[in-house]
């Protein structure tokens, strides 16, 4: 049983902001796939739930070359997977969506929920990190948070009370750039990542790597970018990048894998991905 609460379904952003700022102990939700489980386990017990799905703006994906991609907070991963532009131009995010949870859950789970749940294992997060996404925040004072500043700890974000995520915006990657997300799990279907590695490459000088499940937050490894900006043989850079990834993460041991195994696999996947995207045998 989910504990008792009052349900509200505003149809505009303003109405949602007002409800969130006036109701006692209120939480917003979109898909509910994380929140209802937390509530069922009595880990959170909000008195009021605000359903964001009736706000049509939050259900939309839009793209233009100049402004990039904008994904409403309540867009599901199934919808992201159906988007040709995401598949063609933001492949690393499409990849992440394709391995997040399972196909049935993806009909409900949303991008806003995935980042706000702020699990270190959130599959969409490393993709958003390497794509330089910006989080649009609704509240009494609307603002924007670069995704690199959004995750502040395990299940913690930079959102303040009274704020919620309205959309995620991603600048258009330069033509010719490529990205992939590599997820390592105990099974190929439905499981949280042991390690997830997102890589975005725009030529040999602009290489970005971010990971899930290896740190208290999803993490982008700045040291990798420095290595690739410098000159030198690519073989050498890949080797140094793998070392940089392994020395900048601090995973935990849990039921899915040991700390040592995660550190090892983070390097393996980073190397595998860099070789594929940089076309180095």
């Amino acid at each position: 049983m989910i504990p008792k609460f009052d349900y509200h379904a505003p149809t505009t952003i303003d109405e949602a902001v007002e409800l969130l700022n006036t109701l006692e102990d209120a939480r917003v939700f979109a898909g509910g796939t994380d929140l209802f489980v937390l509530m069922r386990d009595r880990l959170v017990r909000p008195k009021n739930l605000i359903d964001l799905k009736q706000i049509s703006e939050l259900q939309q994906i839009s793209f233009d070359e100049r402004n990039g991609l904008r994904i409403g907070a309540a867009v599901t991963f199934a919808e992201i997977l159906r988007s040709e532009v995401v598949k063609d131009r933001f492949r690393v995010l499409w990849d992440a969506a394709s391995v997040l949870a399972d196909p049935v859950l993806r009909n409900r789970a949303t991008i806003g929920g995935n980042i706000c749940n702020a699990s270190p294992a959130a599959d969409s997060a490393p993709a958003l990190l390497v794509l330089d996404a910006v989080v649009e925040v609704a509240g009494e004072r609307p603002r924007e948070i670069p995704i690199g500043e959004f995750f502040t700890g395990v299940k913690r974000t930079a959102l303040k009370p009274g704020e919620f995520v309205r959309a995620v915006r991603i600048p258009t990657p330069p033509p010719g750039s490529k990205g992939r997300y590599y997820k390592w799990g105990r099974t190929r279907g439905e499981d949280l990542a042991i390690v997830g590695v997102a890589i975005q490459v725009n030529g040999e000088k602009d290489v970005r790597v971010a990971l899930s499940s290896v740190y208290k937050t999803p993490i982008r490894i700045g040291a990798v970018e420095k290595i690739f900006k410098e000159g030198g043989p690519v073989e050498e850079k890949i080797k140094r990048a793998v070392e940089a990834v392994r020395s900048n993460i601090s995973p935990i041991t849990d039921v899915r894998g040991s700390k040592e195994y995660r550190v090892h696999m983070a390097g393996v996947l980073t190397e595998r991905g860099l070789r594929e995207l940089l076309e180095v045998k």
């Binding site: 989910i2 349900y7 379904a9 898909g31 509910g32 796939t33 209802f36 489980v37 359903d51 799905k53 199934a78 196909p103 049935v104 859950l105 009909n107 409900r108």
Partner: peptide
Amino acid sequence: CTVWLDGKPVKSCLVLAVE
């Protein structure tokens, strides 16, 4: 508990009746 909501499969334990 999978059922279809408007033709798409969803896990009905994670959907509120009011939704």
